[in-house]
Simulated scan of single mutants.
Amino acid sequence: MSSQRASDQQKQPKYRQIADYLRAGIMDGTYPSGQPLPSEETLAKQFSVTRPTVRQGIAELRASGLVEVMAGRGGFVRSPHSRPSLTRPRGVRREPDGRYVEADGMRWTNAEEPTATRTDAPVALADLLRVPPGEPLFTYDVLQTAEGSPLRQLHRTYVPFSVLVGTKFEEEPPPPAPDLYRALTALGHELHFTEYVRTRMPMPDQAESLRLPDGVPLLQLLRVTRNSEGQPLALEELHLPGDDLELTYLL
């Protein structure tokens, strides 16, 4: 390390020096993923600072998603080089009995009753659904938990009113997905699915519902259900934790 670089580092606030020291250790494997960081007391003595200064340095790493702090247990490493603990094949398949299930076979349980509302299509969703902005949509929101796993997801279903014209669902609301798939099939549609995936930082209520640590993004999946002519029939918006989950697609 050059004397100039060392001098520049010494000019940094102590909490930043602590953050840089720990970040370097995480990146080079000195502190492996899942392992605890040095205690606040150890770092305070090493850098001749108070424990609040140590916490300020660790807070920088939490914000960047490199550290998870567990109440009563301290800080644990979340290395960007580690493999995710859960890999999920994506897609929807139809069973012989007519049910549609997720390709990974995972069973989802509603943590609460789906909330049904009527909304107007915003521009971005209207484009995907090929309906005019402002067209009314049936909308369902529900928090779901995965059977046998701590994984949680926020699941929203949109169905344009125009898709249901001339059907029994003009008089009664359609069911939310996945039951929606069988209902659309019963109306004579052959279903095809397209998913769009991106990451973004969660809103505070989403982070709370999904139990996301600070600095962890979420995966946003938009699944469009189309008929054999390519007409969009419904859209689902799914939000899942983006820290320890990997999605795979069969090409």
Rank of each mutant, 00 (worst) to 15 (best):
S2P: 09
S2N: 13
R5E: 12
S7K: 15
D8E: 11
Q12Y: 00
Y15F: 14
I18H: 06
A19R: 05
L22K: 05
R23D: 11
G25D: 04
M27L: 14
P32R: 03
P38N: 09
E40C: 15
T42I: 10
L43K: 09
L43V: 11
A44H: 08
A44S: 12
K45A: 15
K45F: 08
R51E: 10
P52E: 13
G57Q: 07
G57C: 07
A59H: 14
E60M: 08
E60S: 07
L61A: 11
R62A: 11
A63M: 15
V67A: 15
E68R: 13
V69Q: 09
M70Q: 09
G72Q: 11
G72A: 06
G74Y: 05
F76P: 08
R78A: 05
P80R: 02
P89M: 08
P89D: 08
G91I: 13
R94F: 00
P96Y: 00
D97S: 08
G98H: 02
R99L: 13
R99V: 08
Y100R: 04
R107Q: 11
T109V: 14
T109G: 09
P114T: 03
P114V: 06
T119D: 13
T119R: 10
A121N: 00
A121G: 03
A121P: 00
D127F: 07
L129M: 02
G134Q: 02
E135T: 07
F138E: 10
V142E: 11
V142A: 12
T145M: 11
A146T: 13
S149T: 11
L151G: 06
R152V: 15
L154I: 12
H155F: 12
S162T: 07
L164V: 02
K168Y: 03
F169W: 10
F169H: 09
F169P: 12
E172I: 14
A177I: 03
L180S: 13
Y181M: 07
L184A: 00
T185A: 15
A186K: 05
L187Q: 11
H189S: 01
E195R: 14
E195A: 14
E195C: 09
R198A: 11
R200S: 14
P202G: 06
M203K: 12
Q206F: 09
Q206G: 03
A207N: 10
S209G: 05
L212M: 12
P213M: 04
P213W: 03
D214G: 12
V216S: 08
L218F: 08
L222V: 09
R223G: 03
V224P: 02
T225I: 01
R226L: 07
R226H: 10
N227E: 00
G230I: 01
P232M: 00
P232W: 00
A234F: 01
A234N: 05
E237R: 12
H239P: 02
P241D: 04
D243F: 08
L245D: 02
E246N: 06
Y249T: 10
